[in-house]
């Protein structure tokens, strides 16, 4: 029973963080088939933005997350204009953009390492937004208040994204572009502006997800790589571009990872997820939440 609660608690936490990261990736993929390999470094940067705001600028802690979200969005916009913007007409855009953003991500990561080495230190910082280990008990299992904050934050942001997509003109335009690009252009949607907007939104969410990650594990320049890959796994599992599916898949992946970590060993978490996704792809290539068997060739 204890194990069970432990798995649920930490699974929900992983799930919440992956969901934020994955929703951003899924939105961007849905809008213009771009898989952003610099997503991970944007998560890392988000954690550093929060640190910068709270620790070095001495601004109110409550606003650190919104600040990071805005900065993440700005990085997303910059990333768009130095990569995708020039590449949209390329024949193999889906593939070339992966390589390009991989290069961009690596450059940013190495640059961040270098910058910190020169001016500060590369060693981990503790996230000022973390509440530490203070916790309450659920049937003998300690649940930290930090987890509550992460859950609440993730739920609020996802609900906001949902409302944005379903209720606002801009959100409808995002969905329209994802569903039929030419049709969207025919009703006057400036598709390129939508691409920028979606990448900004996705990157902002990634930045917040990065803060959440660092609130459990400290802030470190290489912290984003692993969760980014897991977010990729989540959207593959859900079926690329399926946003609600990505939410469920994020929870599923979080639970599986937590179960493996609690019951077997920490390091097999990722391997277990990978096996899960490979089995899922063989069994249901359109994603486990895919509506139909969309040909993926």
């Amino acid at each position: 029973m204890n194990y069970f609660i432990q798995i649920i608690v930490s699974g929900l936490t992983f799930g919440a963080m992956y969901a934020l990261a994955a929703v951003g990736l899924a939105l961007v993929w849905g809008a213009f088939n771009m898989l952003n390999m610099s997503h991970g470094i944007i998560m890392t940067l988000g954690a550093y933005f929060a640190l910068l705001w709270a620790e070095y600028m001495g601004m109110p802690l409550v606003l650190a997350a919104p600040f990071a979200l805005v900065c993440g969005a700005v990085v997303g916009v910059i990333a768009y204009f130095i990569s995708a913007h020039w590449m949209l007409k390329q024949k193999n855009f889906e593939v070339t953009i992966i390589i390009a953003t991989f290069g961009l991500g690596m450059a940013l990561e190495a640059g961040l390492l270098k910058f910190l080495r020169e001016l500060f230190r590369t060693a981990p910082y503790s996230q000022p937004l973390s509440l530490g280990a203070k916790s309450f008990m659920v049937a003998d299992v300690p649940v930290s208040y930090q987890r509550l904050v992460v859950w609440a934050g993730a739920i609020v942001l996802i609900v906001l994204v949902g409302l944005f997509l379903s209720r606002t003109t801009a959100g409808r335009a995002v969905r329209a572009v994802a569903q039929n690009r030419d049709a969207a252009r025919l009703v006057g949607v400036p598709v390129r502006r939508i691409y920028v907007m979606v990448l900004a939104l996705g990157s902002g969410l990634a930045a917040v997800s990065g803060i959440m990650l660092s609130s459990f594990k400290d802030v470190h320049p290489l912290m984003g790589g692993d969760p980014m890959l897991k977010a990729f796994i989540v959207i593959v599992l859900a079926g690329l571009g399926n946003i609600t599916g990505a939410l469920y898949a994020a929870l599923l992946v979080g639970m599986v990872e937590a179960a493996v970590k609690v019951l077997i060993a920490d390091k097999y978490g990722f391997a277990a997820i990978l096996i899960l996704v490979i089995l899922a792809l063989i069994w249901k290539p359109a994603g486990i939440f895919g509506r139909s068997t969309v040909a993926r060739q």
Binding site: M87, I99, A100, G103, L104, M106, L108
Partner: peptide, 13 residues
């Protein structure tokens, strides 16, 4: 690695 990343980006673009 910064240089390599930028080179990859520029070539792909």
């Amino acid at each position: 690695n910064v240089g390599l990343g930028v080179v990859v980006l520029l070539f792909m673009v």
